[in-house]
Design a protein around this nucleic acid. Structure first.
Length: 358
DNA sequence: AAAGCGGGGGC
DNA sequence: GCCCCAGCTTT
C-alpha cells in the first residue's frame, strides 16, 4: 500500500517539532525518562486512561516499587490494591507477570528491541513503539488515539480507525512521517499535540500550526474525524452482594472467569437480569448455596448505579446474619472490617460502602 | 473481524 | 446521555 496525497512528509514532522520546541509546556514525570521500567509502567497505566487519572497511580507505584524486581516480589493482592480504581484490571495481572518474567528470566534487565518488547504480556504495538522510541530512540512510530485523530484531520483521512485496514493505513502513514533520528521526541510531541491542541472536542484550530494546511479544517469536517465504524452495545446487570455477618466477621471471594473485575474481590454474589425483591434474592441465594438456610435478613441497602463503557450495573448490599455453626465454602475468605481493607474491590462496592456510611 | 474489558471527565 | 482516553487480549 502506498500513501498518496502527501507530498512532503518531513514538513509535517518539522512543523510538529517546532511546535513542541516553542509551545509545548506539557510536563509529566516519565517524560524524558530513560529507565525502561518507569516508561513501561507509565505506558501500561496510561492505556485507555487519561494522563490526569493515571498520574497518582504512577507515583504510588514508583514510590512503593522503585525497580522491577521489587514489583516482581510483591504479593498479587498488594499490587492489585495499588491498582484498585484504575480499571482494566488485566493490565495489572499482565504487569505482574511481565515484572516476574523479566526479574526471573532476564535477571531484571528490560529488553531493548521492539521485537522483544512487543512480545511482553500486556504490551502491544503502541506500547512497544512508545518504550522503544522513548527509551532507546528506536524508529517506531506510536499510533494511539491522539495519533489517529491528528493524522485523520491534518491529512483528511476518513478511513475508519477501528478496522484492520484503518489501523494498517494509519500505522504506515505514521511510520512514513516519523523523523527516524528523533523518534522519541517526535512521538512524545505528536501525542502531546493531540492532547493539548488537536483535542477530540473543541480543538484549538485558531492557533494550530497546521491551520493553513489541515484538510479537515479546510473541508469543515474537523468534528467528524476520525471516523469510527462500530457502535457499542449496552448491557444492564443487577448485582446483589450478600454480606454474611457471623460473629464480627464477613466473607469475600475473588472474582474469576471471563467477566468484569476479574481478580478483584467481592461479597458472595447473586446476579440477576432485572431488579428483584430482597426476599426473592435471599431465596435464590439459599437455593444456590451462597448463604445457609438459617440466614436472616438484617438490612438491604438502597441500590447504587455505575455506568461502565458497555454495561450499566446496579448494586445492592444485602446484609444477612448467619448461624455461628455455619461452615463457609472453601472459596470464601473470612475477613474482619480491618483485614477487609487489604483487598482490592470494584468501584461499585466502594459506592455501596460510601452510601451505607451516609 | 469482533467482542470484551473500568473508570473518569468533557460536553 | 454519549464519546473518548498514551490499547490489548481473547474468541
Amino acid at each position: 500500500m502506498k500513501i498518496k496525497h502527501i507530498n512532503n512528509t518531513s514538513e509535517f514532522a518539522q512543523t510538529l517539532l517546532q511546535w513542541n520546541k516553542l509551545d509545548n509546556t506539557r510536563q509529566m514525570p516519565w517524560k524524558g525518562e530513560k529507565d525502561p521500567y518507569k516508561v513501561w509502567l507509565s505506558e501500561i497505566i496510561l492505556q485507555q486512561t487519561r494522563v490526569e487519572q493515571g498520574l497518582a497511580y504512577y507515583n504510588s507505584f514508583i514510590k512503593k516499587f522503585s525497580n522491577i524486581k521489587k514489583l516482581a516480589a510483591a504479593p498479587d493482592d498488594t499490587v492489585f490494591k495499588l491498582w484498585e480504581g484504575l480499571g482494566y484490571y488485566s493490565r495489572c495481572r499482565n504487569l505482574l507477570a511481565t515484572a516476574r518474567y523479566i526479574s526471573k528470566e532476564k535477571d531484571g534487565v528490560f529488553p531493548s528491541t521492539y521485537e522483544e518488547i512487543v512480545q511482553l504480556k500486556g504490551v502491544g504495538p503502541y506500547t512497544a513503539a512508545a518504550i522503544a522510541s522513548f527509551v532507546y530512540n528506536l524508529p517506531h512510530a506510536v499510533v494511539d488515539g491522539n495519533v489517529f485523530r491528528v493524522l485523520s484531520r491534518v491529512f483528511g483521512i476518513d478511513t475508519p480507525i477501528d478496522t484492520t485496514a484503518g489501523k494498517k493505513y494509519f500505522t504506515q502513514l505514521a511510520d512514513e512521517l516519523l523523523p527516524v533520528k528523533q523518534a522519541g521526541i517526535y512521538n512524545q510531541a505528536l501525542m502531546d499535540f493531540g492532547a493539548v491542541v488537536c483535542k477530540p472536542a473543541a480543538p484549538l484550530c485558531e492557533t494550530c500550526p497546521f491551520n493553513t494546511s489541515c484538510i479537515a479544517l479546510k473541508n469543515k469536517v474537523v468534528d467528524f474525524l476520525p471516523v469510527k465504524e462500530k457502535k457499542l452495545v449496552q448491557k444492564t446487570r443487577f448485582f446483589y452482594f450478600m454480606a454474611l455477618q457471623q460473629d464480627g466477621k464477613t466473607y469475600i471471594q475473588q472474582r474469576t472467569g471471563k467477566d468484569i473485575w476479574k481478580d478483584l474481590y467481592q461479597y458472595p454474589l447473586v446476579e440477576t437480569a432485572d431488579a428483584q425483591p430482597v426476599a426473592a434474592v435471599i431465596k435464590m441465594a439459599k437455593a444456590a448455596g451462597i448463604i445457609p438456610a438459617g440466614a436472616a435478613l438484617i438490612h438491604a441497602s438502597q441500590p447504587v448505579k455505575q455506568q461502565l463503557t458497555h454495561q450499566k450495573v446496579h448494586g445492592i448490599l444485602v446484609q444477612v446474619k448467619v448461624p455461628a455453626a455455619y461452615k463457609a465454602p472453601a472459596t470464601y475468605i473470612a475477613v474482619t472490617p480491618k483485614t477487609l481493607q487489604q483487598y482490592a474491590f470494584p468501584k461499585l462496592i466502594h459506592l455501596l460502602w460510601q452510601q451505607e456510611n451516609n
